[in-house]
Amino acid sequence: MAKKIITVLGVTGTQGGSVAERFLSHPDWLVRGVTRNPGSPKAKNWASRGVQLFQGDYDDVQSLKAAFLGAHAIFAVTDWASNHARVTADAALQDKARAAGRTFEEYAGDLETAQGINVATAAAEPVVLRTLERFVFSTLPAVRDISRGEIVHSWEFDSKAAAEKYMRALPPLSRVLSTVTMGIFQETWRDIPAFRPRRRPDGTFELLRLRAAAGSHVADPLVVASRDTGAFVEALVLDHPTGTDVLGASAVLSREEYAALWGRTLGVEASVRDVSEDEYRRYVPEDIQVTLLDDLKFFAEYGYTGGNAKVKLPGELGIKTTPLEEYIRAQDWSLVLSGEM
């Protein structure tokens, strides 16, 4: 019996890699990984493990179509941050942003939306739809729309939401569409100081919370994306009907609950301190300060999914996720515990 094929976009990234890992464990599935550079060390590693590599570019619909041909399932993920990096490094793209009257951050969102539309266009080709049974898109809520124009800097949220809106308006594709709304990546503690505990002079630890992000929603979805993205996509492809939408969360915790869990797991005392925007910004990389602060305000006021009742918790769908204490225990916190990080 021939194997079914799942095409995984961004196979060398966090989400795509997790999906590839999970489906490699299914002997009746062939994993097809799409990457811009099949010759990279990460790509070669996947090839050595049995992943069929395709060279693909989000800006090239034909390359995407070639990667999708014959696939029974597709996992699609786009990335605002990589597009922002492209814009900040490319004078021609900067000129295009200025000509369009867009900031570099807004233009990166425009590029991400266009790439999501390219993915949808390729997947909706009749020759692709002949075999396609499941299309899973990694998405985020439409912050600007949900907040009625109050919150306008959540570019990576709005760009994905715009692409999802386009996908839902394509009837042949929408019939096989499911989504995973990814939560706050736990892996980012290494890159965003505001997301990791800080050692106080007395040897206890504190987690920062933005004082301005006050609202009725105090718990956020936290996800071990490198492990659990694959579990979400596996469930959407194998276990649930098309049209199912899941929240990509390993756990849903308040800041206090996470601090208590982190401290208990590592045998230290940790608590939460509310800080001003000026102080919080000091612990956030400059290129994401504006958008991250708006994201946090949205979460607190509207909830992470903006009140979308269609988005189900993993537990409601029987999806087993990584216990956060297991993830915490597996990390090297030595620099944090010593106060050097």
Rank of each mutant, 00 (worst) to 15 (best):
S18N: 12
T181C: 11
G267K: 12
N118G: 01
K96I: 01
A114T: 06
S147D: 07
V77A: 13
E206I: 14
V31A: 05
A163L: 07
L132V: 05
R200T: 13
E269R: 09
A89K: 12
S334V: 09
T204W: 11
A99W: 00
D110N: 04
V275N: 08
K4V: 01
G183W: 02
W262N: 03
V34S: 01
V19S: 01
S25Y: 08
G17L: 06
T7Q: 04
S276K: 08
G39Y: 01
V128A: 03
V252L: 07
A231P: 05
N83F: 04
R196H: 07
P221M: 05
E269S: 15
W333V: 06
T188E: 09
K42Q: 13
V51T: 08
S250F: 07
W262K: 06
K297Y: 03
I74M: 04
V311G: 06
D28S: 12
E269C: 01
S48Q: 03
V246W: 11
V11T: 13
D295W: 08
F137C: 06
A91V: 14
Y283T: 09
R98H: 08
R190V: 14
T181H: 14
K160D: 04
R134L: 02
E150M: 06
G116W: 00
H217P: 04
S174Y: 10
E133L: 02
T113L: 01
G33E: 02
G339Y: 08
P241A: 13
V8W: 03
T14E: 11
A161Y: 04
A260I: 01
V19G: 00
D90A: 12
T88L: 15
R264N: 15
R227F: 13
G248K: 14
T103V: 12
F75K: 00
A67W: 00
A213K: 12
F137D: 05
V119W: 00
S271H: 14
S174D: 12
L236P: 02
T121R: 13
D239Y: 10
R211I: 06
G16E: 10
I5V: 15
K297G: 00
T291F: 07
T181Y: 13
E286N: 09
R282D: 08
W262G: 04
